[in-house]
């Protein structure tokens, strides 16, 4: 069964085609491009590229697996809306995978998994032998250092952990971004069981900044003049 994997919850714009055979899971093609500001531009060409490289037509796909975050809003939505429209158009199910789960899935022991949430914060959770031990949260690195003090965390993975290793007091290791194959692994049971399509609910973890009465000015910019 061929699945398309997408994730845009970190600066890594991720697209891959995975083959879920009886023997195991094999990646047929993948593109991981690190550019925190170009999710809207680069995701679609990456999908096009992995489909072409894998020799797969969209209608050959059995499912779409997408990272649902947590992640910075705009980039995260690019992946989710792409997965939603493709799944609807192809009439195939879409399954969500927590992006931190994919990043932590291949780790051993007690590990902090952290991605960059911008605004000097990180999205984080603690994993034990690859399984989530705490729910995903967003917090300042210094607060996370206190929160994990009693968890017995020895190592950390993810770009958020790399960036704030000193504040966190834990040394960071690879991978920096979630490996595409882990999304396929984490959704494999659902794909094989042909589970119903899921509503792709983004893990925003933050509320929108909506306190100021903004003016209704969507396009007052160079484009108008």
């Amino acid at each position: 069964m061929l699945v398309l994997v997408l994730d845009t919850a970190t600066p890594a714009i991720t697209a891959a085609v995975a083959d879920l055979g009886d023997g195991g899971i094999e990646l047929r093609a993948q593109r991981v491009t690190v550019d925190g500001r170009a999710h809207g531009e680069l995701l679609a060409p990456s999908i096009d590229a992995v489909l072409t490289e894998a020799g797969v037509k969209p209608f050959d796909l059995s499912a779409i697996v997408v990272g649902v975050g947590p992640g910075p809003f705009t980039g995260l939505r690019a992946g989710l809306v792409t997965a939603a429209t493709m799944s609807s158009a192809l009439g195939i199910p879409a399954y969500g995978v927590c992006t931190l789960d994919a990043l932590g899935a291949a780790t051993v022991g007690t590990v902090l998994v952290a991605t960059d949430a911008r605004r000097r914060e990180i999205y984080w959770a603690v994993y034990r032998d690859g399984l989530p031990g705490t729910p995903p949260k967003v917090a300042k690195p210094a607060e996370v250092a206190i929160a994990i003090a009693s968890e017995g965390v020895l190592r950390a993975v993810g770009e958020g952990a790399e960036k704030y290793a000193e504040l966190l007091g834990v040394s960071a290791e690879a991978p920096s971004f979630p490996p595409p194959i882990e999304f396929a692994r984490l959704a494999a049971d659902r794909v094989r069981a042909k589970a119903p399509s899921e509503p792709l609910t983004p893990l925003y973890l933050r509320r929108p900044d909506a306190v100021e009465p903004a003016t209704r000015k969507p396009a007052l910019a160079a484009g108008e003049r």
Partner: peptide, 13 residues
Amino acid sequence: LVGVAGAKGLALA
């Protein structure tokens, strides 16, 4: 961006 990415997904599919 939501519309653009969604439309691209539709075009790809």
